[in-house]
């Protein structure tokens, strides 16, 4: 498959040793992206979590027991398996910045992309979203709401990218040369421990570009060749080992 190369490649580095699993990123994401309040969180047909925290365990008993939390947004893959299977071109990776788009009115709800995505980052609207009376006032005008019957996913808060470009234009700067921190998604802003870092992976000045080259950096299911733009960091070998399907005799990547 042909990979489009971009001058700017927005990426995220999530330090799993800093993540406390508090869930602030999930809440910030739901509020920012007009995800309707969940009626029943135990019913997985009714939960839409663009950002989802997984709990990892090393599987050992008490004194050696250890856990880690892994926030999972859309990986914005360099070679997205979702967009290649979409029969109606409702999801593409064609914009400068490398964010995988999702156009709701175009989506026919076939859910091929959900089957193709190895990260389970996509969600289907089985029901129309309902905002309890009064809560519709919390809707964000920068994001559109999705009806029943379409797939949705994390967009790296793309509307914030658009807003940052507008601001740069207003100040007479080049909108494609944003300063570090001018555009960050809601989850990054909300993270109280600073575990999530966001920026341009192609810009060596940006913190993400440096962190992504760390010896502790890894990506999820890296050997599938999807080239995710989301990196994780952990000094703990057992955490890194859970990111991919290693054979018993294989050495974990990193360090």
């Amino acid at each position: 498959m042909h990979i489009k190369e971009f001058k700017v490649k927005w990426g995220m580095v999530i330090d799993l040793d800093k993540c406390t699993g508090c869930g602030a990123c999930m809440v910030a994401c739901q509020a920012e992206n007009n995800i309707a309040p969940v009626t029943d969180g135990s019913n997985k047909l009714r939960t839409l979590t663009w950002m989802l925290i997984y709990e990892l365990s090393n599987g050992k008993d008490f004194p050696e027991h250890d856990i880690a939390y892994l926030p999972r947004p859309c990986m914005q893959c360099g070679k997205p398996s979702c967009s290649t299977v979409c029969p109606v071109v409702a999801t593409t990776k064609d914009e400068e910045g490398g964010i995988v788009s999702q156009i709701y009115p175009r989506c026919i709800g076939c859910r091929y992309c959900m089957a193709a995505c190895p990260y389970h980052a996509r969600y289907f609207n089985w029901f129309d979203p309902v905002w309890p009376e009064g809560m519709e006032k919390t809707l964000n005008i920068s994001t559109s709401v999705r009806p029943r019957g379409v797939v949705e996913k994390c967009t790296f808060c793309h509307h914030r990218f658009a807003a940052a470009k507008e601001k740069a234009r207003a100040e007479g700067r080049d909108p494609m040369k944003l300063e570090e921190g001018e555009y960050i998604p809601a989850c990054v802003e909300a993270c109280p421990t600073g575990a999530i870092v966001f920026g341009d992976l192609n810009n060596p000045e940006h913190k993400v570009a440096k962190l992504a080259r760390s010896k502790y950096a890894f990506r999820l299911l890296e050997r599938l060749g999807t080239e995710p733009q989301v990196y994780y960091l952990s000094r703990r070998e057992w955490v890194r080992r859970q990111a991919d399907n290693y054979l018993e005799n294989e050495k974990t990547k990193g360090e």
């Binding site: 064609d94 914009e95 994001t143 559109s144 793309h158 509307h159």
Partner: peptide
Amino acid sequence: ASNACYICHK
């Protein structure tokens, strides 16, 4: 100008 989906859609 680019005609990428996200240029005009949100």
